[in-house]
Computed example of a mutant assay.
Amino acid sequence: MKNFFYILLLFLSPSLWAHPHLWIDVDLNFTSSGLLHVHWTFDEYFSSDMILNYDVNRNDILEQNEQDEINRIVFRNMINYDYFLDIVRDGKKVDIPLASNFKASIKNHKLIYDFDVPLKQSWNDMEIIPWDKTYFADMRLTSCPDSIPGTNVTVIQEKLKRDTLGWGTIEVPGVFLKEN
């Protein structure tokens, strides 16, 4: 009976079911040609697991073949989650195209992803929100320019409330792009 009590206590523990499970620092950059450059820096726990699994020669550098493996096994699946990006224009969700120029690297023992999302629309009146609706990953916007070079579009950072799938409402970072 005593063991049953401990097992029951373990499964009722809130920390067992807690979210998120990984943390990502996000930097966004924009080009006048409609390219959104995304830079992710993963937390040390996820990074150490990925580095252990994919840096097969243990040199703290992800060689091209190791990057290709990460792309094939892990990153390509991110299109199914819109690369953790909500992009809204005129109140409607924008379809996220396939990302390009994927690169994985290691810096200060942390895994880094860099990739580009080509957007065909103009930047004006667009909202970009890096977040995961399942709240498996917590996204933190760490860098974003105040304007888009070569345009008269201003980038305004904002905090938004979003409903997760089963974890309640959370505050997420976002940017609003507005033509002057």
Rank of each mutant, 00 (worst) to 15 (best):
L165H: 04
P97E: 03
V155K: 04
D163R: 10
K92W: 06
N29C: 07
M78R: 09
Y83A: 00
N124A: 10
T134W: 14
K178S: 09
P145V: 01
T151M: 11
I73H: 15
I79E: 08
S13C: 14
S13T: 14
V74K: 07
G174H: 01
V88P: 04
V74Q: 04
W17M: 08
M50V: 03
K161S: 10
S100P: 09
I106E: 08
V56E: 13
W23E: 11
L16W: 02
Y81I: 07
W123K: 05
I170P: 02
M78W: 13
L36Q: 00
R76Y: 14
R72G: 07
L9C: 11
S32F: 05
L111W: 00
W17Y: 05
E66M: 00
N77Q: 15
I156Q: 15
K159W: 11
S47R: 05
L28H: 03
K103L: 13
P173F: 01
I129E: 03
L160N: 12
L98A: 14
Q67M: 05
N108G: 13
M126H: 02
V94R: 02
C144K: 02
S13F: 10
P14A: 01
L111T: 01
G168P: 06
D132G: 03
L98V: 07
L141F: 00
T164F: 02
L8K: 09
D49Y: 12
E158I: 09
F5T: 15
D43M: 11
P173M: 01
L165S: 09
N124L: 08
M78A: 14
M78H: 10
Y54H: 08
A104H: 05
F46A: 05
S147D: 13
G168I: 03
N152R: 15
A104R: 02
I156K: 14
G34Y: 02
D132T: 00
I73G: 09
S48R: 13
D68Q: 09
R162G: 13
K133P: 15
I128T: 03
G91K: 03
G168H: 02
L12F: 09
E171G: 06
D125G: 06
R162A: 15
I24A: 00
R72C: 03
S122D: 15
W17A: 04
Q157S: 10
M78K: 09
W123L: 03
K107R: 14
L119A: 04
Q121T: 14
I96Y: 04
Q157E: 10
F75R: 00
K178M: 11
K103F: 05
G150C: 05
P173L: 02
S15L: 08
I148K: 10
G168T: 02
Y135M: 12
A104G: 07
N71I: 06
F42T: 11
Q64S: 13
V94E: 09
N29E: 15
S47Y: 03
Q67Y: 07
R89M: 11
G150F: 06
D43L: 04
N29R: 12
V94M: 07
D146G: 13
T164L: 04
M50S: 01
E171T: 13
K159N: 07
Y45T: 14
R72S: 07
V155A: 06
P118W: 04
A18C: 10
S147Y: 13
N59S: 02
Y54T: 10
F84R: 03
S15P: 07
H19D: 10
D68R: 04
M139L: 09
